[in-house]
Design a binder for these strands. Sequence first.
DNA 1: TGTACATCAGTGAACGCGCGTTCACTGATGTAC
DNA 2: TGTACATCAGTGAACGCGCGTTCACTGATGTAC
Lengths: 191, 191
Amino acid sequence: MRRSREEKAETRAKIITTAARAFRRDGIAETSLAKFMPEAGLTHGGFYRHFDSKDQLVAEACEAALDQMISAMEAQASNKEPLEAKEAIVSKYLSPKHRDQPEIGCPLSAIGSELRRCDQATRQIASNGIKRIVSLLADQMKDLSPQAARAQATSTLATMVGGLILSRILDDQKVSSRMLRDTRNSLVEDE
Amino acid sequence: MRRSREEKAETRAKIITTAARAFRRDGIAETSLAKFMPEAGLTHGGFYRHFDSKDQLVAEACEAALDQMISAMEAQASNKEPLEAKEAIVSKYLSPKHRDQPEIGCPLSAIGSELRRCDQATRQIASNGIKRIVSLLADQMKDLSPQAARAQATSTLATMVGGLILSRILDDQKVSSRMLRDTRNSLVEDE
DNA sequence: TGTACATCAGTGAACGCGCGTTCACTGATGTAC
DNA sequence: TGTACATCAGTGAACGCGCGTTCACTGATGTAC
């Protein structure tokens, strides 16, 4: 039975957020429409009233996950001195909590090595996400020149993404936690 | 028709190296047996004379790719002063050439975010690979205490893996190359 | 504002296809004497 | 060393299954007058 415009928009948003979680949890290729649509409270037949293809959903879900990640980082930085803000962002990112919850965490770490093979729209969205996070980090490095800040922000993000991905691969809890600690300590000055 | 023991061993090795390339090129989930077995010069029916399952092949292919990567790093370090050796390894890793050839490069970067969801055998092999690379890098940091060297080697590897993965996602050549340059420069002292 | 009809969100079954795995078969290799 | 037979590597077709996508259908919503 037909739904109101408002309901349709809600359904669409629900599909995107559910898919964004599923993709990060199980990977894009390993997430089938029939598997996650019930999680959104729908049968999978209705999917194509909202999206042209799975690829289109991938792009939008990726965008949503990046927006969510960046908003969280902005919230962590708000009302803080630059140095403190950077430390807060890095520490949250390289935390056991983030490691253990890929489904609600950074998509660059959750599906990083899959994004390379996604279509142009998704690649562009992911690229923009990287640039936005680099800018956000560079904003916390006010003591450097703009170029130096961006360069340092870039390598900081690389260390964050690499550290989180590797910590998730490591099968020994202790070694995994040490990976998080070592990478975090290399990025924050004090402590 | 039956093959000799020697031929069988060659076939098995050929399957592993072909699969190791295919997994890194297209991802594990997106690589089907029927797709890569012809690349190894075989029909896919014979696969199960060599392996119990795709999962077993994944584990062995992952091991082969890591062995290959580590051997290459050892070769780059041989006959060099520690500092020079570290710079050689980092520069080769964060190079456009490595970025553009994931199929023969580091599996941690090529399939990093998939490895987390692989079975126990593969996780263990990947974990060992991480530890071996960290040790290899730590060996090039003789001016630090063993613990400090391992900690720095750990964050160095994280930056390498994160930098390469991000550079492969970025759809703008210039930005991608800058990602490699910025991460490389953050890891090597001079220049 | 009320009515008549067109639209379309969501259902559930079905489509063709490719997946990992199995199997009957072939004939060269390995083994036992 | 030679012979007879068992083994098994590789082929190619087939298995059941789940994939992304399509479709006929339902009935509430949106639109036109």
